[in-house]
Amino acid sequence: MARRYLRLLGAQLRIAGLVSLQYRADFFTDGLLSLFWLGVNVAPLAVVYGRRETLAGWSFPEALIVIGWFTWLKGILDGAVNPCLTAIVEHIRKGTLDFVLLKPADAQFLVSTAKFAPWRGVDSVGGLLLLAFAFVRLQRWPTPGAVLAALLLLCTAVALLYSLWLIAISVAFWVVRLDNLAFLFGSVFDAARWPVSVFRGAWRFLFTFVIPLAILTTYPSLALLGRLDARTGLFAVLGTLAFFVLARQIWRRAILHYSSASS
């Protein structure tokens, strides 16, 4: 079973690669754009730290680490998640989702691996550079244990991103003319560029429990800095798991809805 899906993943990746080779020029536009957005994302931070030493306990290089993670994840979001999102909205709009549902493989798997935009991965490189720069400014390097914890949390972050995305897609079954779904996703995700402790009250609750942006960027950054306690880490892993299960359930409901309400 697992081998079969690995083979399928290979086949889908191959196709996606071939398609993106058809659009080689995108490499330059996407690459330049991602560098540009890196600058855009750092600008407000530079303004704050131009006038303050710390913000909610975060120094400038530490906040840069959060932005580094954010850029990293944005590369994954734009490279692997958003293309599938737009592809499925297109499927629903054109009615070609039927073909996907008629394939003898899990539909969730198929739509989640249907499309990649490897050129967008340039973002991830930018993110790594930013991380390196931040640690140079901090004048110390993370311990191996911290790196390991951060990598673990990277996995939860990607899984969480994926779950949030799946929930967003499922919404597309109920509201078909949802061209701006990617925009919504992008703009909610944008808030993850700030350490969650910057927010107070309702906002912090929202970004920790409802749309857990904290798990996406703040916790991995804390882990990298060696400041994450085990309880929070466990919370991140369990929370991600819960979101994953929830997303899968919503997806199944959506498919059921699709096959019982449409004509």
Binding site: N180, L181, W203
Partner: peptide
């Protein structure tokens, strides 16, 4: 529904 989604995408100033 789309309208609400669109509205949500413009909440950046609130953040």
């Amino acid at each position: 529904a789309e309208f609400v989604v669109w509205l949500l995408t413009t909440t950046m100033p609130l953040i």
